[in-house]
Write a protein that binds this DNA or RNA. Structure first.
Length: 277
DNA sequence: AGTGTATCCTGCAGGC
DNA sequence: TGCCTGCAGGATACAC
């Protein structure tokens, strides 16, 4: 569920609640979310202090003392809840997978109904190596239309699949890929390399604007997503194409269509986004 | 290189 | 009410 704006919103909410707090120990309720042996994970986080909260792609990063990084991938239904932390009162987690018991009041709970998410504690060098595998952050200044056009030009992959590939661009998921392609008037199945300069520019603008607006709205809640206080993201009301199969296009009234490829729904307007492969 | 498919898991909506 | 199918903001491994 969570894409860049949802992970970013969660990080912003958790930051004031957690920075400076010390982890007493971790309780593991569902070991299948760990990407390392439970004993190694417990040892890696025990007694460490939270130095900072950051986001990379769709991951929440908890920087810990001793050059450790707690990397949380939220998967489809992952959520981090500061339970019992002074000044915070999120709803009680229903599917706790890992609880980080803090020194002093409260705990941080990784809650994940479907358990597609993952949690791991890495040392600095291992995280930095992992970090290099992600593509550029689309909201950073270094991500230019020229860069996007060049990168698209190297791939025959459908542009929707290209946008979902975290090695190529970080943080875009199925909702924002659909919205960006609609804004840029590009058909989701178009081979990436067939986009001309103007289309790449339009897509660059569209990806950045939709992500920026979604961050400002606190993300998109369709079903499950919650921020650090349990509140919903408000961008759902601004979705113009995602989930609108069978409805009239908000721009031209043509019927919105749904296409399934690479195992996932792609929503598009056949008039505004003509062509295809 | 890229695609289609399956897999991990739970819950919900809709049809009968 | 129960039982079925299909669907869901993700990431990966596999065969072709």
């Amino acid at each position: 569920m969570p894409e860049l704006p949802e992970a970013e919103t969660l990080v912003r909410g958790l930051r004031p609640a957690l920075v400076g707090r010390r982890i007493r120990h971790a309780r593991i309720h569902h070991a299948d979310v760990l990407r390392q042996p439970p004993s190694r994970f417990r040892d890696a986080v025990r007694g460490r202090t939270v130095l900072a909260l950051e986001r990379r792609a769709k991951n929440v990063l908890v920087r810990l003392s001793g050059d450790r990084v707690l990397a949380v991938n939220l998967g489809m239904t992952g959520w981090l809840a500061p339970v019992g932390v002074p000044g915070r009162d999120p709803p009680r987690p229903t599917h706790a997978a890992v609880t980080f018991v803090l020194e002093g009041p409260g705990s941080l709970v990784f809650d994940d109904m479907r358990r597609f998410g993952s949690v791991e504690c890495l040392d600095g060098p291992t995280w930095r190596e992992r970090d290099r595998r992600f593509g550029p952050e689309p909201l950073e200044a270094g991500f230019t239309a020229r860069h996007l056009h060049e990168a698209l030009g190297r791939s025959r992959s459908p542009v929707r699949s290209w946008l979902l590939d975290q090695r190529r661009i970080a943080g875009v998921g199925n909702i924002y890929a659909a919205e960006a392609l609609f804004r840029a008037r590009v058909h989701p199945a178009r081979p990436a390399r067939t986009l001309d300069h103007g289309e790449a520019r339009a897509l660059h603008r569209a990806v950045r604007s939709v992500l920026r607006e979604a961050v400002r709205a606190g993300g998109t809640t369709i079903r499950d997503y919650r921020n650090a206080d349990g509140g919903e993201g408000l961008f759902a009301r601004s979705l113009r194409i995602y989930g609108r199969e069978g409805e009239p296009c908000v721009r031209c009234k043509e019927t919105v269509q749904r296409l399934v490829f690479a195992g996932r729904s792609a929503f598009f307007c056949p008039r505004c986004q003509p062509g295809g492969p």
